[in-house]
Amino acid sequence: MSELMSQGTLAALDGQQGFNPPRYGRAGRTTEALLEAGRQLLRERTLDSLTNQEICAAAHVTTGAFYGRFKSKQAFFRALQAVTAEDTDRSMTACLAALVQGNADLQAAVHALLSELRRVTLRNLGVLRATILEANGNAWQGFKQRRAAFIERAVPVLAARHQDGDAEWLYRRIRIAFQFAIGSIINAVLNDPGPLRLSSREFDMELTRAFCAYVAAP
């Protein structure tokens, strides 16, 4: 079972509309297997092309087990989005907390944050792509709000590692640098234009270089 599905999956679904919480351990494992199957299938497939039967086959469970947990495919996708949001929040919060406790310089701190962001994006690639492309969906707005809140927590942590410049000017520069970096990651999710790939650590290095160069520019 993947790292994503092994930590806090059911907690992330607490109160989720269209989801029937499992009462027993086996039912919980079935839920996790279904979510993991959907997450993997969406890496190569669109949400519209994916059937509940295919999800069940990939998870090695019956369609009855699917409908015992999820009211519909849409409810299943909403559950995947909730788990993805929780995974992203948990990973990025832990990374930022480690930086607060450490003594990394600006470049190392930026690299740590952008590396973790790339990894969590890659881990949830299909779900995020489907969320961005979802017609009449509003889940992406929630992801954007979470991202904006995280950036506001990260800005002073990074600014403390850059000694020059007016604080207001520096905070704005860091926010803009995040906008550039996250835009590049989203472009890779949707278009994979290359030459940098989400699967490559070189992406981290070049994003960090661009981020720090912009912050330091006169």
Score class of each variant (00 low, 15 high):
Leu113Val: 13
Leu198Pro: 04
Gly102Tyr: 04
Gln163His: 12
Asp87Tyr: 06
Gly183Ile: 02
Ile151Leu: 11
Pro21Gly: 12
Ala97Thr: 13
Leu114Thr: 04
Ala112Val: 11
Ile132Leu: 13
Gly126Asp: 02
Cys212Val: 15
Arg90Ile: 03
Arg146His: 02
Arg23Pro: 01
Phe70Asn: 00
Tyr214Leu: 15
Tyr214Gly: 05
Ala57Pro: 01
Thr208Ala: 07
Arg173Trp: 05
Arg43Pro: 01
Asn52Ile: 13
Ala177Gln: 12
Pro218Val: 07
Ala104Ser: 13
Gln7Lys: 12
Cys95Gln: 10
Arg123Ile: 07
Arg118Tyr: 09
Leu125Thr: 08
Asn138Met: 07
Arg78Thr: 10
Ala27Asp: 06
Gly8Ala: 13
Phe70Val: 00
Leu122Arg: 12
Gln74Met: 09
Lys73Tyr: 00
Ile132Arg: 09
Arg147Glu: 15
Ser72Tyr: 02
Ala188Arg: 09
Val127Tyr: 05
Gln16Pro: 03
Leu114Asn: 02
Phe143Glu: 08
Ala33Ser: 14
Ala213Thr: 14
Arg39Val: 06
Arg209Ile: 04
Ala217Arg: 08
Cys212Gly: 04
Arg146Asn: 10
Ala85Ser: 13
Val215Ile: 01
Gln179Asp: 06
Pro195Arg: 05
Leu47His: 06
Ala82Val: 11
Thr62Trp: 10
Gln16Glu: 15
Ile185Tyr: 10
Arg26Met: 03
Gly68Phe: 02
Ala112Lys: 06
Gln7Asn: 11
Leu106Glu: 07
Arg45Lys: 13
Gly102Gln: 14
Cys56Val: 03
Ala213Trp: 05
Arg45Ile: 04
Thr51Trp: 00
Leu158Ser: 08
Ser6Ile: 06
Pro218Ala: 10
Gln7Leu: 08
Ala27Arg: 02
Asn138Gln: 10
Ala160Trp: 11
Ala108Asn: 08
Gln81Phe: 11
His162Ile: 02
Leu13Arg: 08
Thr46Lys: 06
Phe178Thr: 00
Ala27Asn: 05
Arg197Ala: 14
Asn191Ile: 01
Leu190Ala: 05
Ile186Val: 15
Ala139His: 05
Pro21Ser: 14
Pro195Gly: 02
Ala27Val: 00
Asn138Ala: 15
Phe180Lys: 03
Gly28Glu: 13
Leu80Gly: 02
Phe77Val: 08
Thr46Gly: 15
Gln163Thr: 11
Ala210Cys: 10
Glu3Phe: 03
Phe180Met: 13
Asn187Asp: 12
Phe178Ile: 00
Thr30His: 14
Phe180Arg: 07
Ala82Pro: 00
Ala65Trp: 07
Thr51Ile: 00
Glu44Met: 08
Asp166Gly: 06
Gln145Glu: 11
Val120His: 03
Ala217Pro: 01
Phe143Cys: 11
